[in-house]
Design a protein around this nucleic acid. Structure first.
Lengths: 163, 163
DNA sequence: TATTGTTATACTCTATAACTATA
DNA sequence: TATAGTTATAGAGTATAACAATA
């Protein structure tokens, strides 16, 4: 149930309830609502560091996998290659990563973090983890595990069908 | 773990693995990946009916809550009012809903489904439920319940903090 | 003075085709 | 012939300010 409250004390209409009975079992809707909350919260967590969800995710993957190729990163992030270019551009222009020549393929780049990138990674990671802890507060370990299990199952069920 | 496979049999590089160890506990990333899958699948489920996720969700809420105001619908869908206008325009132009005058407020509209809208709602709902059943296949009832519990907890934790 | 629906606008994210240089 | 990275471009989704009509 979603409750719509009058915004001001003087509003005339009573508290109205919008039934979302049909949507209660619509996983896509529930997932979207929760993701909206997490996305907005993440945006606030990353703003002080000048990062967005996409640039943060790319930075994390590059720090964890130095020498990564852009096509590998695009695959890992589930982002189209053309859309990754501007993300890498942004991180490189800020001096957080570098595009080194790949040792074995002159077409490709080996993405590596700079010391500044690693510093920012550490700080941003801490902030993100703190923010997520708040959003997941009150959940039992079992519920948390089950959520991750369910999210993973969706991915696997999709891949089996050629996603 | 995300596995990057060579796309063609003749490719030279071996199977490379990208570690997303740090992202494993990053709920936003896991949620986004799962939501991407659900969004794409939903897109396919709704395409035969000429609906998108947003128009489908709006139609469902209007069928379940005839007489709904646009501001209530925007609130229930977590969409800004200006962005809802084009969604309602689209549904109205297709003859699936109507903007009736609200009986008690000449500024507002009472959104109501047409018979055509209700017909389409029934068919689209069936298709969406079938698609989601496939994506959630293999999950125990307990895991499914825990997932919904966790998604709901995220929403509630956000509202407590003024989201 | 506040709210409903609206217009206009801008920004982010996503998706596709086509190019270059290498393989 | 295929792949890595790139450019250009178009489409969704999202966010904010400001307006007219009404409360």
């Amino acid at each position: 149930m979603s409750t719509v409250r009058p915004k001001s004390p003087g509003a005339a209409s009573p508290v109205a309830k919008v039934s979302d009975a049909t949507l209660q079992r619509f996983a896509g809707y529930r997932m979207k609502r929760a993701f909206n909350v997490i996305r907005d919260d993440l945006h606030r967590a990353l703003k002080p560091f000048g990062l967005r969800m996409l640039t943060y995710t790319a930075l994390v993957l590059i720090v964890d996998n130095p020498g990564l190729r852009q096509s590998q990163l695009a695959d890992a992030m589930d982002v189209e290659r053309p859309n990754l270019v501007v993300i890498i551009d942004e991180l490189e222009q800020r001096g957080l990563i570098v595009r080194d020549p790949a040792p074995d393929d002159r077409r490709a780049y080996a993405l590596n973090p700079t010391p500044e990138g690693m510093q920012l990674y550490i700080k941003a990671l801490r902030s993100v983890e703190e923010h997520e802890a708040v959003l997941l507060a009150g959940l039992s370990d079992a519920d948390r595990d089950a959520m991750f299990t369910a999210l993973q199952a969706v991915l696997l069920n999709s891949r089996e069908r050629g996603g």
